[in-house]
């Protein structure tokens, strides 16, 4: 019972191994060597998670479980190895060829990850718009529709914690891909893709509203869900959920964000 978290964790990583095609012998993406991690950092440092200490989230008082010293490193999406499978090899080849045709440097794609049958291209923000235009216009790619743009905050202690994800759909080829741009919270600027995908207008406004990512070149980047004069960006991890403690039958129940978290 007590090692439930670790078993499920390992199970997950085992499952990932099959999908992601990790190098043989490597059991977990969390076990990247320090050299590999340094390489990650140099390439933009795609860290997607927070490191965890202990097992039950016990802080500030004695942990009697014996698992207080357990350290789980932050999850780093592993770069995919060829062959990717699921037709992603052809797709990536087409994409690289189209990028070359349109003078988009290959370095625009910092990392490619294939996970659970979905492909993610981690993109440098300088080339995002050109890349989107390539993806939309190239006859072999034809990602006509931008399904969704949204933000993810990976937590306060994570480098480049704010990520903007773009879910593109090719109706011609019935494919979906994900682009992901990681930025620092101090320099949360991403070029707007509204000129390529007009539908991104409200999505980007929502991402600005909730995460404080500035989309440069957006026609009217204003708050959309929160009031215009709102302070702060509600879906950032350091923004409190709010709520007040509730007393029930003599016991005080803290608000959800201050309750004990187990992992």
């Amino acid at each position: 019972m007590t090692n439930m978290t670790t078993t499920s964790g390992n199970k997950g990583h085992d499952g990932n191994d099959k999908d992601k095609g990790l190098a043989p012998g490597r059991t977990s993406s969390a076990e990247l060597s320090s050299a590999e991690e340094a390489e990650h950092e140099a390439r933009g440092g795609v860290v997607a998670g927070r490191a965890r200490r202990g097992m039950f989230g016990v802080q500030g008082w004695g942990d009697t479980s014996g698992y207080g010293g357990l350290v789980l490193p932050a999850y780093v999406p592993p770069p995919a190895q060829r062959p990717y499978g699921d037709g992603f090899d052809e797709l990536t080849d087409e994409l690289l060829a189209a990028m070359q045709e349109r003078d988009v440097p290959a370095a625009a794609i910092q990392q490619t990850t294939v996970d659970r049958g979905e492909i993610t291209y981690y993109v440098h923000r300088d080339h995002l718009v050109a890349l989107c235009r390539t993806l939309r216009d190239d006859p072999a790619l034809r990602f006509e529709m931008c399904s969704s743009v949204s933000g993810v905050d990976y937590g306060t202690d994570v480098p480049q914690r704010l990520h903007v994800t773009y879910h593109l759909t090719s109706m011609t080829y019935r494919r979906r891909i994900r682009l992901e741009v990681a930025v620092d919270v101090d320099d949360a600027h991403v070029p707007s893709v509204v000129e390529v995908y007009p539908t991104a207008d409200w999505h980007e406004r929502e991402t600005w509203d909730m995460f404080g990512v500035v989309f440069d070149g957006h026609p009217a980047l204003t708050r959309i869900l929160m009031p215009d004069d709102w302070d702060g960006f509600p879906q950032r991890k350091d923004y409190p959920l709010g709520g007040i403690p509730v007393e029930y039958k003599g016991a005080e129940i803290p608000p959800p964000d201050q309750r004990r978290a187990y992992s």
Binding site: G12, S29, P77, D115, E118, S148, V152, G155
Partner: peptide
């Protein structure tokens, strides 16, 4: 606990593509 990673799952709702983008960091 859900193994870390992210997925986007779209279904056809009465109004169109209803997608759910989930990100897990390995926690519960």
């Amino acid at each position: 606990a859900v193994p870390p990673g992210q997925v986007y799952f779209p279904v056809e709702s009465p109004r169109g593509e209803l997608g759910c983008h989930l990100v897990s960091d390995g926690g519960t």
